[in-house]
Write a protein that binds this DNA or RNA. Structure first.
Lengths: 326, 326
DNA sequence: CTGAAAGCGCTTACAG
DNA sequence: CTGAAAGCGCTTACAG
C-alpha cells in the first residue's frame, strides 16, 4: 500500500480512510499529507473483496430508456453519488426471469444494497433477497427486515384527476386504464371510481377501456371509444403516454381538445407540458421518488431506519381540460 | 476455492473457467460436474482484483434520463449483456469537470473499457484515456490506438431534411439550430445550407435562429421568428424536441401545421410519432448507435479491430410537412 | 492508539 | 497438461 511508504502501517491508513478507529493526530496528518501528495485513490475492487463492501448499489429497473424510470434513475444517481456510492443499473424488461437474472448478476458483483423499481417479481422473492442484503422496493407496499418500500398514493392521484373533471361539470367521463399487472394502474382506477361515487355519478363499465400505458394503446383505446358511439365529454387516461396517444386519436377524427372533450393524464412527464394542447395531468415527482429511494437505501446501509416518504400527487391544470358548456 | 473440493487444483479450475489452457477431458468433466453440483458462481470482484479484468465497461452518458441517450444506453446494455459484461452508467451533465470525475470513478473501479457518449471533454483528454484502456467514443471523429469513434452522418441528415422541404416547393425555410457546442448541431446546419445551395436558394441568415435542443428552446425560437415578421413557409428544427416546442408555439398563435407552415425535426425519437400532427423527421437509430458502440468495445476488448458503422439517416415523412400551395 | 498477520476469491507466471 | 506459490490492494480480528 503506497501510503505506507509515508510513515505508518497499512492498518493505520485503512483506519483513517474508513474512520474505523481513532488515530493520533500526528499520524493522521502524516497520512493525509501522503495521500494528497501521492494522489492516492483507494481501489474499490480490493475494498470490496477484503471488507465485503463495494460501495455500489444495484438498481433493477425495467427499461433503462423509459421516460418514467429514466427520471427515477436520475434521482437515485444524484443521491447515491453524493454519498460515495455508485449505482449499477440493470434492466428486467418486465419479465420475471430476466429480473431474477439481473439481480443475480448484481449479487455476484457484491453490491451493498438493492433498489427494485416495480417489476414482476413476486413479493416473497423480494423479501427473500432482503435477507441477503438491504433492499428498497419502489411501487409496492410490503415489509420485512432490512426491506423498505416506497410508493406514490396512486389512488389519491386518480381521485383528484377525476374530481377535477367532475368540477368542470363533466359526468360522462371515460377512463383509459393502465396495464392491470401494475399495482398502480389498479389504484388509479380505484381513485377514478371513488371520485365518481363521491359525486353521485353512476359508474358505467362501458366507459372503461383497457390500455397498456403506451401511446399506441391510448390511440387504440380512443378509437374503440369513438366507435362505440357512447356519449362522453371527458377522458381520464391512467398515464401521460396514453393521454398523448388519445389526443392524436381525437385529432385524427376532428374531435377538438378541450372544446369537444377534456383530457387528463397522469405522471407529468416532460412531454405533457409540450403536448398540443398542453396536458392537464397529475404530477408525481418521479425524480423525487428516485432520490427518496436512494436516501432510504443509505439509511439502511448505515443501519438506520429509513423515514423516506413521498409528497402527495397534485393536479397540474393546463389546457386540455375545460368547463363543460351547456 | 470451492470447486477444488471436487478433485483438482484451483489453477485448473481457473483455467477451465477462463478457457486459458487445454485441460484433460477427465478433469474437465469432473470440474464441470462439481461446478454444477455446487451451483458455483465465480466472484467478479475477486476476478477483477486478481486478473485485472472486471467484466464491466464504464459508460459515460450526459443525462441518464435523456430520451435520446436512454435509447443508446438500452442498445449498449443489450449487447454487453450478451457477452457477459455489465455496463456501469455514470452521468456527466454536460459539464467537463463532472465528466472527468465520473470517468475517474469508473477507472478506480477498474472497468475494462470506456464508452463515451458525447460530452464536453476535449478530444485530447479522450485520447489520453485511450492509453489507459480501450475506449469508444460516440459522436466525434477522432483516432488513436485502442480508440474507436462512431457517429451518424449529421450533415447528410440535415441535407435530406432540407431537400424534402425544397421538394415540397418551399423556398423560405427557417432553421432552428441546435446547441453550437455539439458537433452534430453544426453538421446539421451545414446540411441545411448545402441543400439550399444545391437548390439555388439564397441563404438568409435571418432565418436561422439559435436553439438549445430543448422543447422550451424550440418554443422560444419560433416566437422570435414569428415576431420578426419575416416570411417563411417551413421550419427545419435541428432535433425533435425543438420541433415539438416549435409546434406548440405555432399552435398558440394559430399558425396551422402543415397548412400554414411545414415542420421537420431530427432524430425520430418516440414522441415524434405521436406529436400533433405526427412529425416528419430524420431517423437515426439511436438504439443501433448504442449497440454498435458496444460491439466495437467488445472487439477492442478481444484485441480485434472494430468495424462497426452506422446506417445512414433516412427521412421519415409524416404529417407535419406538405407541398406548398400556389 | 497501533502493528503484524491472515485472508477476501481468484489468476498468473513458474516449474515441472 | 497441471500444481504450488505468490500476489492483486485492501480490511479486520488479534495482540499489544
Amino acid at each position: 500500500m503506497v501510503a505506507l511508504a509515508a510513515g505508518v502501517s497499512p492498518s493505520t491508513v485503512s483506519r483513517i480512510l474508513n474512520g474505523t478507529a481513532t488515530v493520533s493526530p500526528a499520524r493522521q496528518d502524516a497520512v493525509d499529507a501522503a495521500i494528497k501528495r501521492l494522489g492516492f485513490r483507494p481501489n474499490p475492487v480490493a475494498r470490496g473483496l477484503a471488507g465485503g463492501r463495494t460501495l455500489s448499489v444495484g438498481v433493477l429497473t425495467q427499461t433503462i430508456s423509459s421516460p418514467f424510470y429514466g427520471e427515477a434513475l436520475h434521482g437515485i444517481e444524484d443521491q447515491l453519488e453524493k454519498a460515495g456510492y455508485i449505482p449499477i443499473f440493470v434492466s428486467g424488461h418486465w419479465h420475471e426471469a430476466e429480473e431474477r437474472k439481473a439481480i443475480e448478476a448484481l449479487l455476484s458483483r457484491r453490491v451493498d444494497g438493492l433498489i427494485v423499481l416495480a417489476g414482476r417479481l413476486p413479493n416473497q422473492a423480494l423479501q427473500a433477497y432482503a435477507k441477503q442484503l438491504p433492499t428498497v422496493v419502489v411501487g409496492r407496499k410490503l415489509s420485512a427486515a432490512r426491506l423498505f418500500s416506497l410508493g406514490f398514493d396512486n389512488e389519491a392521484g386518480g381521485l383528484i384527476a377525476t374530481q377535477h373533471l367532475v368540477e368542470c361539470g363533466h359526468d360522462r367521463i371515460a377512463f383509459i386504464a393502465g396495464d392491470r399487472a401494475h399495482e398502480d394502474a389498479l389504484a388509479r382506477e380505484a381513485g377514478y371510481r371513488k371520485a365518481l361515487q363521491q359525486a353521485g355519478i353512476a359508474f358505467d363499465p362501458t366507459l372503461v377501456i383497457a390500455g397498456d400505458y403506451t401511446e399506441a394503446g391510448g390511440l387504440l383505446a380512443v378509437n374503440r371509444l369513438l366507435e362505440s358511439r357512447l356519449p362522453f365529454t371527458a377522458i381520464f387516461a391512467a398515464n401521460d403516454q396514453m393521454a398523448i396517444g388519445a389526443a392524436l386519436g381525437l385529432y385524427r377524427r376532428n374531435v377538438r381538445v378541450p372544446d369537444d372533450v377534456s383530457l387528463v393524464g397522469f405522471d407529468d412527464l416532460a412531454p405533457a407540458k409540450f403536448a398540443i394542447p398542453p396536458l392537464t395531468t397529475v404530477r408525481q415527482s418521479v425524480y423525487e421518488m428516485g432520490s427518496q429511494a436512494a436516501l432510504a437505501m443509505l439509511d439502511l446501509l448505515r443501519g438506520a431506519t429509513p423515514s423516506a416518504s413521498l409528497p402527495p400527487p397534485t393536479l397540474v391544470p393546463r389546457e386540455s381540460t375545460r368547463r363543460v358548456l351547456r
